[in-house]
């Protein structure tokens, strides 16, 4: 008993050390203000709980194995009231105060005077991302969020169908997206880079495959990117891509997808205007390249079961090649 009581915490600490804290989706490797505050809190809690556990284990070991004299020291209500009532009452009060204090630091004073507003809408099973710039222009994208570094940005979270939860562990804790409600989350990223987020509330079907990337960029790059993103889609240049575009339009893809500047104006599925420039396809399920587009169109239900796009098994290989090269050049 005694041996194992010490082996376990030690093993625990070892696990933490060995596995390191790197990871594009790890709460232990924060690059956002809220995640950093929580990270500090986590370590305080981990150390406190480990200490309490070890002390309890020692007391229990004494009660079990020590000699009569030692054991009699523990054999009264004094221990129960001291260690079971007073100690937790005091320490937990301090912890609670600390936790509430960290909670109170949330929110941030996001300066929205520059007019940038971002909304993210949870859909089954992808993310609709809408930027509104200072001119009130509405720029829609999907499954990828780009934000400037160094200033808090407020993000409105809503849902189009069931409950989802917006979670980018490196940047902040999660916040649910609930039908009929709008929750606002402040992201304050401290250093540029890519982090990964995932839906954290079970939303049925392909819940496991509902992820996205957040790309934090320096202010200037962000402005340039946003200006680029606001433009219409690239027109296809070579013959293959032009055939792809024609096929895209004639086969009804535009019923659900928008490619700005073309006849495709659907609002049901993700906006594809600049789909080729994103880090991933299908809500961070596939890499972004022409081959992945082809796989997705032909075999989407296998890659991401139950997804809401109809299967398109009707294209020949050549047709698929032209379609996917058209989509891939939408950068």
């Amino acid at each position: 008993m005694m041996r194992c009581c010490f082996v376990w915490p030690a093993a625990a600490i070892l696990l933490f050390v060995v596995s390191g804290c790197a990871g594009v989706q790890s709460a232990l490797d924060p690059t956002g203000a809220e995640a950093e505050r929580i990270n500090t809190l986590s370590w305080v809690l981990i150390i406190f709980c480990t200490a309490v556990f070890i002390i309890t284990a020692i007391i229990a070991s004494v009660a079990l194995f020590a000699n009569e004299r030692w054991r009699q020291q523990l054999a009264g209500e004094r221990l129960v009231i001291g260690a079971g009532l007073i100690f937790p009452a005091v320490t937990l009060t301090f912890l609670l105060a600390y936790g509430i204090f960290v909670l109170g630091m949330g929110g941030g004073s996001a300066d929205t005077s520059d007019g940038l507003r971002i909304s993210v809408v949870g859909e089954r099973w992808w993310w609709r991302v809408i930027y509104r710039d200072e001119n009130g222009r509405r720029i829609e994208s999907a499954n990828e969020l780009r934000i400037p570094v160094g200033r808090p940005v407020k993000i409105d979270l809503t849902s189009a169908d069931v409950i989802h939860s917006f979670w980018v562990p490196k940047l902040a804790g999660k916040l649910d997206m609930i039908p009929g409600r709008t929750n606002t989350l402040t992201l304050d990223v401290t250093s540029p880079g890519v982090s990964r987020g995932q839906c954290a509330e079970y939303c049925g079907g392909a819940h496991a495959l509902m992820s996205f990337f957040v790309i934090a960029m320096p202010e200037k790059d962000f402005a340039a990117w946003l200006a680029d993103e606001a433009k219409d889609a690239h027109q296809p240049t070579d013959e293959l891509e032009t055939r792809g575009q024609a096929l895209f339009i004639a086969s009804g893809c535009g019923a659900c997808h928008t490619v700005r500047g073309t006849a495709a104006t659907g609002a049901i599925g993700p906006d594809l205007t600049h789909v080729g420039s994103r880090h991933s396809l299908a809500a961070a399920t596939l890499p972004n390249n022409a081959e992945a587009f082809a796989r997705w169109i032909r075999d989407g239900q296998h890659i991401k079961p139950e997804n809401l796009m109809p299967p398109y098994p009707i294209f020949s290989d050549e047709e698929l090649a032209s379609l996917s090269s058209y989509l891939a050049q939408l950068r």
């Binding site: 937990l92 009060t93 609670l96 509430i100 909670l103 109170g104 949330g106 929110g107 606002t184 402040t186």
Partner: peptide, 20 residues
């Protein structure tokens, strides 16, 4: 203890803010 802990939180937090 329970009442005191719950009541004391109001000293720190804004009553209606979501603080996220």
């Amino acid at each position: 203890i329970g009442i005191a802990l719950a009541g004391a939180t109001t000293l720190i937090l804004d009553p209606c803010a979501q603080l996220r």
